[in-house]
């Protein structure tokens, strides 16, 4: 399964480099490189500055969201959990909206320091702030209650939503448009700066999270039994929460709100290869990367030369597939 997904990922990845609004062919460009000819300026820019970072970002964001979804489902022992449950999405959304609407008020030094990356930085910080707050609320004497975290997350989400509402209310038309598009998600702003800042965070989190397989399998038997069989339950929780907050925070910061990957991908894989988290976590990051790059290709070509927000594509494709899977299943999902 790992192997098949990896092969598919490479094929789709190469293919995605060849697809786009301009007629630049990867084949002819590669041929030129092989022959030692110089690329045209156009080819260089399109391939290296636009499509390559976009592909890299798509791979990372997809892997981050799907892996985070699988980890959250394991942690909350619930197939419907998604990365948003640790508060990242709500906080990141609020951070992004704040940055979009109040950017004009930011002091000069701040504007200089972060430049045009103000929105991603604010989203990332917002995501982290809310995760830490949730963690704090649900942890007593060194033990984190995931049930409390779930409930507090709902409250925090409502609060962040209300604050965002206030900001939406005072925003002007252009800002309103910006933040609507932010909420729908896009890889359109991909560049190497984003890849190089979000990349390491996501890579490290995904690799660390991949090691949680055994721990999450143990948690499936309940927290008490997980401890009885020798697992350090609090360490598993901490690692899960931190990696998900980091990976999702970084992913949301650079790509906006992209839904459904985190729920659909692990669910599909569980139907195929069972609930064992050891293969599941790795497969989820591979399939997530694959599907997101595919979705991004569709987003780029379907109304070319314009582009659809990728969140729309993942929802339009993901939701019906998800419903179809649920319909086809003999047994109802047991929570």
């Amino acid at each position: 399964m790992h192997l098949w997904l990896s092969v598919a990922l490479i094929v789709v990845g190469i293919f995605s480099l060849t697809v786009g609004a301009t007629e630049v062919s990867l084949g002819s460009a590669l041929w030129k490189v092989v022959q030692g000819e110089a690329l045209t300026r156009m080819e260089a820019i399109v391939l290296w500055d636009i499509r390559a970072p976009r592909l890299a970002l798509g791979l990372m964001v997809g892997a981050a969201l799907a892996m985070s979804g699988a980890v959250m489902q394991g942690l909350f022992r619930n197939p419907l959990a998604d990365p948003g449950l640790v508060g990242v999405s709500a906080g990141a959304g609020l951070g992004a909206i704040t940055a979009i609407v109040l950017a004009g008020l930011a002091p000069m030094w701040l504007a200089l320091a972060v430049g045009d990356q103000l929105v991603p930085v604010a989203a990332f910080l917002g995501g982290w702030a809310s995760t830490l707050l949730l963690y704090r609320v649900s942890t007593r004497r060194g033990r984190t209650s995931v049930a409390t975290m779930l409930l507090a997350g709902i409250a925090l989400g409502a609060l962040a939503g209300a604050l965002s509402g206030v900001l939406v209310y005072i925003s002007d038309d252009r800002q309103l448009r910006d933040l609507t598009f932010w909420g729908l998600g896009s890889l359109g702003g991909a560049n190497w700066t984003k890849v190089l800042t979000a990349g390491p965070i996501i890579m490290v989190s995904v690799v660390v999270a991949a090691s949680l397989g055994r721990g999450l399998n143990g948690l499936a038997l309940g927290e008490a039994t997980a401890a009885h069989i020798g697992l350090n339950v609090q360490w598993i929780k901490n690692t899960a929460i931190l990696t998900v907050a980091a990976a999702t925070g970084a992913a949301v910061a650079v790509s906006g709100g992209i839904g459904f990957i985190g729920i659909v991908v692990p669910h599909l894989l569980r139907l195929g290869t069972g609930p064992d988290h050891r293969p599941l976590l790795i497969n989820a990051s591979l399939l997530g990367a694959l599907l997101l790059v595919l979705a991004d290709m569709i987003a780029r070509v379907i109304i070319a030369p314009a582009e659809l927000p990728i969140g729309i594509v993942t929802a339009v494709l993901g939701a019906p597939v998800f419903l179809w899977i649920l319909l086809r299943q003999h047994a109802m999902v047991d929570l």
Partner: peptide, 15 residues
Amino acid sequence: STLAFPFHAIEVVRI
């Protein structure tokens, strides 16, 4: 005892 995901009996023992 509880079990969160649809594991096979043998997998429960192996976990």
